[in-house]
Design a binder for these strands. Sequence first.
DNA 1: GTGAAAGCGCTAACAG
DNA 2: CTGTTAGCGCTTTCAC
Lengths: 341, 341
Amino acid sequence: MKPKKYADIIDVANQAGVSPATVSRCFNHPDKVRPDTRRRIKTAVESTGYIRNRAAQAIHGRRSGTVGLIVPTLDNAIFSNLIQAFSEQLNASGFTMLVATHGYDLDREYQLLRSLLEHRVEGIGLIGLDHKEETYSLIERRETPSVAMWNYRPDTRISCVGADNYEAGRMIARHILDIGHKRVALVFPDIEGNDRAAYRLKGVQDVFDEQKIDVPKNWHLHTPYSIKHARRVCTPLLSSEDKPTAIIAGNDVIAQGVIYAAQALGFKVPNRISVAGIGDFSGSAHLLPSLTTIRLRSNKVGQTAGMILDKLINGDQENHIERVAIGVELMQRQSTAHPFT
Amino acid sequence: MKPKKYADIIDVANQAGVSPATVSRCFNHPDKVRPDTRRRIKTAVESTGYIRNRAAQAIHGRRSGTVGLIVPTLDNAIFSNLIQAFSEQLNASGFTMLVATHGYDLDREYQLLRSLLEHRVEGIGLIGLDHKEETYSLIERRETPSVAMWNYRPDTRISCVGADNYEAGRMIARHILDIGHKRVALVFPDIEGNDRAAYRLKGVQDVFDEQKIDVPKNWHLHTPYSIKHARRVCTPLLSSEDKPTAIIAGNDVIAQGVIYAAQALGFKVPNRISVAGIGDFSGSAHLLPSLTTIRLRSNKVGQTAGMILDKLINGDQENHIERVAIGVELMQRQSTAHPFT
DNA sequence: GTGAAAGCGCTAACAG
DNA sequence: CTGTTAGCGCTTTCAC
């Protein structure tokens, strides 16, 4: 009494009057099966409602057809573009994407990597370059094709594709100084476990140092990536007598919060205060005022990462490391201008 | 000459001086293994770098440890919250999430469902209730635990959890009429393959019909979910002589675009024109003006959906359908007011 | 072009 | 508590 629940390859084979082996071949090497037979099998598949079992395939050391993606969070405009592009690219190559989020906890990231590896993903996408030693060594030990997105560095342990966030920081800092600001505040997220933010900040600070521009400690604000928090954290700064003429935000969402904080206090942007972001998120060009920012082309990053991973998985080059820098670009818009003074 | 690449359960067993079965037990029923043995196995696992093969487990008709999620797109603030909450909830129950996107193409959705089923996901999360007959029947045929998110209806074929989008539409329409508007324009996304938008729009229109408020055809605008497009599509309407006193947007992103369109033309919101959204996205409360909208609590939806799916998968109730309505709530903020007139 | 048979890595049932 | 045994559903030689 075992009313086998779902059709398996044997049911299909019986139904089609062929052997299981032929059915298998029909899926994996269709050209090695006579068209006529193929058609009979196809009919049998439909009538039995058979659905292949990838797990059973994967067990033969064959491909699982999945790639893993580990991101800090999905709940964030920052990664949406990136992930979408990555996913689409991989989908086009026939992969299904396993996604896991670690909430900026790198220990958890390692655990998730293990879990994904248990599912025998054929490749791994990661965000950023800041990972635990265990994470790197596990990837290396298993020679899992991997690509780190969002941050380019010339000296990475695994393939990477991304914008040079350090350069992005430098670029926006230069812009702000170029147009004449000397009194600048910084609003950045916590750089703990977030190397993208860390590099951006470093870029900004290096330019400031070079130009001998000093940012008072209390002009260096921290906030999570949200309009709400950014707005809240900036309001006291902007309400004070001694305020900056420009603010550089760690990304566009924060910048938007900063702009609202200023506008709510009655300060026109950019007349009274300039605000710059980093990222050029969708929508940033259409804010009021439109936001001066650094374009990072996240969809290009995601797409390229997908292509690289595909190549790493299907290519013959073992242990190859590929690094692609996606150019950054200053998008000068309405939110920055010469200081009023 | 077959230098077996990675450790398997047998290697671990040898290393630990036990049988493979014991190693297996150690993973699946640790309490049935002596602590001492357990420790030896643990050491062996570490020294061999063994990583379990879920595929091989899954083949035993056991759990694959994955659930599938099929969404229209990831590139969208709309789903970010939802997905994040869903994913976290399932993660907590030990599942890894397989994600696929169909780009609002329901044929593709069906294909993705098949693909996910090939991976033997234990459950499926879908967005909305508008799916192909094939999609529904495949789910039913395989009795795959499934939950549709984002839209509640009392008469669904599969479990669902979401806001009653129809009610959300009614609620915002009532609000706009209550505060005295009679000349109202609608800016909605295309309702093709998007039942959430369709129900919202229906709700709005039913209230208008009941109150004998007529919306001229050319005041019914369509736009994708983006600030840019919303802003563009509204500008001509707002530039015309004969313009509405209020605009209801299909969601908050569109509403934001509408507000910018108005502000760019020099019209104060809400003084010259009221704008309302639907969704209450993160940030909507902190725009300038803050946005009147309908709170849909997407994270609650995602979390509940995750819980339901877990229950459906692990519970004993076969073929049970659970439906949860997440209450909608009017968030009256600054962007709407009595018409000036 | 197709079938028979062996076996992938693991787990469950049953002994011991 | 642990080992032995028999497969799970499929793919892949190797014959035919």
